[in-house]
């Protein structure tokens, strides 16, 4: 096991961690407002394919990222309209969104499969910082979207904890009827949270096709959207903890292929299951502790709000 191999492990951990973190932050926003969106995988796929298409057509990675975020928001809004507007079952609608997103992405991307990328977001050089041993390659030589993930994590955390908007958003997720009584639009709050969440999932997808593996093919997201959903539970609906969880889950992804060159005899299949096993364990802890203290899940999560049925 050489130093370069260990540094490589951490570089990949941070990179995969950022991928998962962006999508999980989006899911956290929606869930904080009371909307469970199981369509993360579909929104990531749409973000990935639109980023790639725009990259090929316009050769501009930033335009590609922007369009990916807009497409993610648009697709999420479908879920928003059905669940928030029409009060449809959130689980059913979210699952449909995953299938819809994956199918739509495959359809849109049909002519772009296997094409060389038109635009890429390459790692940022931070001058002398990038040359530092260990710290340099791991933190100061990552793709721009990694830093975007960090910024978004801080922003989401601040907005939720210290702004009136964040308070209203959390209230919409805890008790929609009292939020409504207080004069806030539950509909507006929830719809915007779902759309913003979709934009972050779209950015996560764009990270795949603009940096990690700059190409498009069906099945590119490979279930990582589901890990993001699990991550929100793992992080107990707190942006900071979700970030730590993202690094742990990202580490399992990075370790999956590296155990073999490290000479460790351990099935990569078991390692792939680890994020889900950890999440189940956290769910267990939450439900066992629920007798003594309330669950960290938003109280109104999954419940449709209809004023006339109050």
């Amino acid at each position: 096991m050489t130093e370069a191999s260990i540094i490589g492990l951490f570089v990949a951990t941070v990179s995969f961690g950022a991928l998962l973190y962006l999508a999980a932050l989006g899911e956290l926003l929606a869930e904080k407002a009371g909307v469970l969106n199981l369509g993360v995988e579909g929104m990531m796929a749409i973000g990935a394919v639109t980023a790639f298409i725009i990259g090929v057509e316009l050769k501009n990675p930033w335009a590609a990222l922007l369009v990916a975020m807009l497409s993610g928001a648009l697709l999420a809004s479908v879920h928003g309209v059905f669940t928030v507007g029409l009060g449809a079952e959130q689980v059913v609608s979210g699952l449909s969104l995953t299938i819809l997103g994956l199918g739509l992405a495959a359809y849109l991307g049909k002519d772009y499969v296997g094409l060389p990328p038109g635009a890429e977001l390459v790692p940022v050089e931070w001058g002398g910082l990038s040359d530092l041993p260990w710290i340099g390659p791991i933190f100061f030589n990552q793709a721009p979207i990694v830093y975007l993930a960090l910024l978004m994590g801080i922003a989401v955390s601040l907005v939720l904890s210290s702004t009136r908007l964040g308070l209203a958003l959390r209230a919409a997720g805890e008790s929609a009827s009292s939020t409504d009584s207080a004069g806030h639009s539950v509909l507006g709050l929830r719809l915007s949270a779902v759309a913003a969440g979709g934009a972050l999932a779209g950015a996560s997808g764009a990270y795949l096709t603009l940096s990690i593996t700059p190409q498009w093919a069906e099945g590119l997201t490979a279930g990582r959207g589901w890990i993001a959903v699990a991550l929100v539970i793992f992080g107990a609906w707190r942006p900071g903890r979700v970030g730590i969880g993202a690094l742990i889950f990202g580490g399992t992804l990075a370790l999956k292929t590296r155990l073999q060159p490290f000479g460790v005899e351990f099935s990569p299949i078991i390692l792939s299951m680890l994020p889900y096993v950890l999440t189940l364990a956290i769910l267990l802890i939450i439900s066992v502790r629920a007798r003594k203290r309330p669950s960290p899940a938003p109280f109104g999560l999954g419940l449709a709000y209809r004023r006339e049925e109050r």
Partner: peptide, 21 residues
Amino acid sequence: WTSTWFDPAVEGDSAQALLDK
């Protein structure tokens, strides 16, 4: 071994791990 025929992220990362080594 990647345990997949097609997962570009894992294939690319496996190559990276070998290059690192």
